[in-house]
């Protein structure tokens, strides 16, 4: 029983990490109907940005709230800039071309960042600076609830609520939804689609920046290919929850984290990914649009 509770905590904590990345995927998809495969690599660049900032300030061994704030801000700024640059240089010129071209460009940008970073940062793993001290919040027998787990889950849920508010309760959000449903009509109504799309990328990439610091603090090993697998899983989580749906992304990510954990705990660690993904395929067979996604028939 104690082990089960521990597995539950581990799974939710892993899931909330996927959630932070999944939110970025789902948000860009929700507005642009395009999958930004470079998102997880923006996250990787964010991790390296905070690594180098911590070294420049000499704070890699001074855990505390100040360090956390500095790293969060620098990583978010770096990621947002990168997100805007990618959008401006790679995606905007292709906005009116077929969807497939943009998709392939996104994969290209992703590979460019992964392998370009190996040249710039070096391919050997680096040790992420110590951001905060982990401590036990609550313990019961063998089961321990750690501050990092709670922080990551808390930040994911806050980010989800924040995005929900941004998209549905603010003027910018209204403009985003307008661009999403029809960009040319939205521009007739006085919305500047270029600005709104750039803004979407800023918010999505900033989330990746937050994610990179939180993941780095929990798993202090960063390398240029760190975004690959986590990005793949976060993307699947977003699809599972219903891509384009903010709450769905978090729900899907938690299910993803839990199913991986439980497969290792009670089935086989060797076939973890195979079994975890089979569970997802099974869910998608019954809910093709994802758990919270709406299945809409395209009118011709």
């Amino acid at each position: 029983m104690q082990d089960f509770v521990q597995h539950l905590i581990n799974g939710i904590s892993l899931g909330s990490i996927y959630a932070l990345i999944a939110l970025g995927y789902t948000m860009v998809y929700g507005i642009l109907k395009m999958i930004n495969f470079a998102h997880s690599d923006v996250y990787m660049v964010g991790a390296f940005a905070s690594y180098y900032v911590a070294r420049a300030f000499g704070i890699e061994a001074h855990p505390g709230v100040g360090t956390l704030a500095i790293l969060l801000i620098s990583s978010m700024v770096c990621c947002s800039l990168l997100g805007v640059v990618i959008e401006r240089l790679a995606y905007r010129p292709l906005r009116n071309s077929p969807k497939l071209n943009i998709l392939i460009t996104a994969i290209g940008v992703s590979l460019f960042l992964e392998y370009g970073s190996q040249v710039v940062f070096g391919a050997d793993p680096k040790v992420f600076p110590e951001v905060m001290k982990d401590f036990v919040i609550f313990s019961f027998g063998n089961v321990e609830l750690k501050s990092f787990d709670v922080t990551v889950l808390g930040v994911s849920i806050l980010a989800m609520i924040g995005l929900q508010f941004l998209i549905y309760k603010t003027k910018v959000g209204k403009a985003m939804r307008a661009v999403s449903s029809n960009a040319s009509v939205a521009s007739l109504m006085g919305v500047n689609p270029d600005k709104i799309i750039a803004f979407t990328f800023i918010v999505g990439s900033a989330l990746a920046g937050v994610g990179s610091v939180l993941v780095g603090m929990k798993y202090p090993k960063i390398d240029p290919l760190m975004g690959m697998m986590i990005g793949m899983k976060a993307f699947v989580a977003a699809v599972l929850g219903g891509i384009g749906n903010v709450r769905g992304a978090v729900l899907g990510a938690l299910i993803m984290g839990l199913s991986e954990e439980m497969v290792v705990a009670y089935m086989s660690s060797t076939y973890r990914d195979a079994l975890a993904f089979s569970i997802l395929i099974a869910i998608l067979i019954f809910k093709p649009a994802g758990l919270l996604g709406k299945y809409s028939v395209e009118k011709v």
């Binding site: 082990d3 597995h7 581990n10 892993l14 993941v215 798993y219 090993k221 290792v264 705990a265």
Partner: peptide
């Protein structure tokens, strides 16, 4: 990066 399931 996460080995907690196996370790638990």
């Amino acid at each position: 990066i996460d080995f907690k399931a196996q370790l638990t």
